[in-house]
């Protein structure tokens, strides 16, 4: 039992509470009626997906800066979790859009940005699979992650201008405390679960990467490569 297992368990308990409250206790949304309940699952997923992918950006900066495999493993763990959460987010979004807007897909800035974010990070994970040399893989993954992540604000504003006629659906004025509680609980639940999963994945990936690199925990300087080969 490590601490992240406890965090994972707490997360699942909180998620059950938050979702239960959202499903059965929260008042029905005036405009969206039952469909409004989707937001208690959807909005926390959106926050956590963005948090996870933001973490992978910082991990990529760390990996490129230090050359340490700890950061490299963190990039993969967070990117992988973030990609799955973003895919879930898009599915939830289209399931929310169908009863409210009448169609599954809309070129809403947030929806479109999430879709592009998903494709960008799938690209990062694919290119990571292709490179077998651990040191080169660290660099390639980190660069692809940084280049992909800095695109996010530009994509968002670009799509926003492109679809400038579209209505915004966030409605803080209709959110009262009975709606905030389940939302907040579910958000912390998703955060705990995602962080725990990232940490579990991080340990596994780090073990694999360090086994692949013959010299564990060496800084990834090109000069050290020859040293690592001499040990064999």
């Amino acid at each position: 039992m490590r601490w992240e297992h406890g965090l994972l368990a707490i997360g699942f308990v909180l998620l059950a509470i938050g979702h239960g409250m959202g499903l059965f206790m929260a008042p029905e949304e005036a405009m969206m009626r039952e469909a409004g309940r989707i937001l208690y699952a959807h909005v926390p997923t959106a926050w956590v997906a963005l948090v996870t992918l933001t973490l992978s950006f910082f991990a990529a900066v760390g990996a490129l800066w230090t050359g340490r495999y700890g950061w490299d493993a963190a990039v993969e763990a967070t990117a992988e979790t973030g990609v799955v959460l973003t895919a879930l987010l898009l599915f939830q979004g289209s399931m929310w859009a169908k009863p409210t807007w009448g169609y599954y897909w809309d070129w809403d800035p947030r929806l479109t940005t999430s879709a592009i974010l998903l494709v960008l990070f799938v690209g990062v994970l694919v290119v990571r699979r292709v490179v077998s040399d651990p040191e080169r893989r660290l660099t390639v993954t980190a660069i692809a992650t940084i280049v992909a992540f800095v695109d996010v604000p530009v994509v968002y504003f670009g799509v926003k201008w492109w679809r400038s006629l579209h209505q915004e659906w966030s409605s803080p004025q209709t959110v009262d405390s009975t709606m905030v509680m389940p939302l907040r609980i579910a958000a912390f639940a998703m955060l705990f679960i995602s962080l725990a999963i990232c940490v579990i994945r991080w340990r596994t990936i780090l073990a694999t990467v360090q086994a692949e690199a013959t010299a564990p925990d060496l800084p990834a300087l090109p000069a050290e490569l020859s040293l690592a080969e001499k040990e064999v």
């Binding site: 592009i116 494709v119 960008l120 690209g123 990062v124 694919v126 290119v127 292709v130 490179v131 390639v140 660069i143 692809a144 280049v147 992909a148 695109d151 530009v154 994509v155 504003f157 670009g158 799509v159 492109w162």
Partner: peptide
């Protein structure tokens, strides 16, 4: 940048557009 990144990889003909095209969405749009 991506051409340099993928130059020495296998499947570079696939990887370059896979990485590049989604990135270029705002540029293409504008």
């Amino acid at each position: 940048l991506y051409a340099g990144l993928t130059a020495r990889l296998d499947n570079r003909q696939l990887l370059l557009p896979l990485l590049l095209f989604p990135l270029l969405v705002p540029c293409l749009l504008a």
